[in-house]
Every structure is written in structure tokens, then in C-alpha cells.
């Protein structure tokens, strides 16, 4: 199984590198603007003039503080959306995309089972998501040092890794749909649509009473639920493990369907 993990990670090296570099570059750009906002209470007065729903979308954060600024500009919108797309792309390509491109017959011609291939590549996608999460967390922290953000590495890393795990659940769904159907489009569509719907539910949850109670059950809650000043401890770690487990369970549940269908172009 691990040879499939290794080979998937080797193939995804370039994608992993450029997604990490791109997100760190974006974070660097954000930090470059931050000194002009530091301690500027006027920006918060401006925010107060916005409707509550817009303020909720920005995490209700104080933009004059490094944590609040980063939460509003990076975590409340850009990073979740980028990683929803990344998770859907990686998850749909790992089995169904390779199958449609005719690249699945050679790995499946070996003496390992289809289940081992699916499990191995799922672990590869998980490690890829965790790596992007960790590299982005460390990159944002390092770049923050240039503007003396004063943010701790631990909470920042915990937030990016938990967000990566939330998106990993969507990658797991894409892997499952791809393995069950062999259709990359269906896998990509299902996972990205669900991801966007869940994120919308999470974002609107602060305003819509019917969704408010659901928010803690959504995959984005462990990473974003605490807002800009969120703390991370064992409960968050447990939720992170739960996300990891759900993301792994989805492709494993698809193994019987993968075993029963025709594969290849």
C-alpha cells in the first residue's frame, strides 16, 4: 500500500510545491499591507458600519490586530476556498482522473489489490493536504515575523492544519466518488459543491438561526469556530482526528464498489 502513497506523493510534488508557494506569496502580500492598518481603529469603525452578516463573514475580527487581520483576510474566505478546490482536484485525480487518462492500468496490473491502491493514494492525498497545511502555517508565521506580528507558531499551525483536515474530508469524498464511478467530473463536482455548500452554511450560520446550531458539526468549525482569538487544545485535536477519520472512512467505504466495477478507459 505504501508504494502507492509514495508514488502519488512523488507525482504530486510539483502541485504541492506551487500551491504552498502561491499561498505563502499571498500571505506575504497580506502582511505587506498590515503595517498600514496596525493600531488603526478607524478601520474597525468602518467595519461597524457594515451589516452584521458581512462582519460575520470576516470573523467579527479586529482588523487592527495581527490575529484579527489575518483571520479576516486569509482564514475567513480565501484559504478555505483555495483548499476546497485543491482537495477536490487532488481527490478526483487520484483515482478517477488517472483512470480517465489511462494511467491506472499499470499500477493495477501488479499483485496489489484495488483496495490497496485506493487506500495508498488516499493516504498520499491526506499527507499532501497536511503538508500544504503545515507549510502554509509555518510560511505565514515566518512572513509575519517581518512585520513583528507577534503571533505564536503553535496556534497558527493548528489552525492551518485543522483547516487542511476539514478540506481533506472533501478530498476523501472525491476519492470515494472517483473510485466508485471512475468519473473524475462527478468526483470533482460532488466534492467541490459539497465543500462550497458547507462553507456557505458555516459562514451564514452566524446570522441564520436555523444553521447556528449546526455550525459546530461542520468540518470548518474546529479551525475557524473560535474566531480570530481561537484557542487550540485537546477538544480541537480530537475534532481534527475525527475529520481525519471521516476523510479516510469515505474512500474505504467505496472499496467494495471499486472492486466490483470495470476499470480503465
Amino acid at each position: 500500500m505504501l508504494e502507492f502513497t509514495r508514488s502519488w506523493l512523488r507525482g504530486a510534488r510539483g502541485s504541492l510545491l506551487w500551491w504552498s508557494v502561491g499561498l505563502c506569496a499571498y500571505a506575504g502580500m497580506l502582511w505587506a499591507f498590515y503595517p498600514s492598518l496596525r493600531g488603526n481603529t478607524g478601520i474597525n469603525d468602518l467595519l461597524k458600519s457594515y451589516p452584521q452578516s458581512v462582519r460575520d463573514l470576516l470573523g467579527g475580527a479586529d482588523l487592527s490586530t495581527p490575529g484579527g487581520y489575518l483571520f479576516a483576510e486569509l482564514f475567513s474566505f480565501m484559504l478555505p476556498l483555495a483548499w476546497i478546490v485543491l482537495a477536490a482536484l487532488w481527490g478526483s485525480r487520484a483515482i478517477a482522473g488517472d483512470e480517465e487518462a489511462g494511467r491506472l492500468e499499470l499500477p493495477l496490473a501488479g499483485p496489489r489489490s484495488r483496495g490497496a491502491l485506493l487506500a495508498g493514494r488516499s493516504v498520499g492525498v491526506l499527507l499532501g493536504m497536511l503538508t500544504v497545511g503545515a507549510v502554509t502555517g509555518v510560511g505565514v508565521w515566518l512572513l509575519g515575523l517581518l512585520v513583528s506580528s507577534g503571533l505564536g507558531l503553535g496556534p497558527l499551525l493548528a489552525r492551518t492544519v485543522l483547516l487542511a483536515l476539514a478540506c481533506w474530508v472533501l478530498a476523501g469524498l472525491a476519492l470515494a466518488v472517483g473510485a466508485a464511478t471512475g468519473r473524475a467530473g462527478a468526483a470533482l463536482g460532488a466534492s467541490s459543491a459539497l465543500g462550497l455548500a458547507l462553507f456557505l452554511m458555516y459562514s451564514l450560520g452566524g446570522q441564520v438561526a436555523a444553521l447556528r446550531d449546526l455550525r459546530p458539526l461542520l468540518p470548518f468549525w474546529p479551525a475557524l469556530g473560535g474566531g480570530a482569538l481561537g484557542t487550540f487544545g485537546w477538544p480541537e485535536a480530537a475534532r481534527g482526528l475525527a475529520l481525519l477519520g471521516v476523510g479516510l472512512a469515505l474512500p474505504l467505504l467505496a472499496i467494495p464498489l471499486f472492486n466490483r466495477r470495470d476499470v480503465g478507459k
Partner: peptide, 22 residues
């Protein structure tokens, strides 16, 4: 018994697609 068969067989597909970057 796919895996048992694959352990004993060498297969060349008609349309070969290999990882270009490796």
C-alpha cells in the same frame, strides 16, 4: 483472484500511458 493472477502475469496494454515526469 485478480491479485493471484497479477502476481503470475506480465501485461503490456495496447495504449500505454506512463508518468511523464518520472
Amino acid at each position: 483472484e485478480r491479485e493471484a493472477v497479477h502476481a503470475l502475469v506480465g501485461y503490456l496494454p495496447g495504449e500505454l500511458t506512463l508518468p511523464a515526469a518520472e
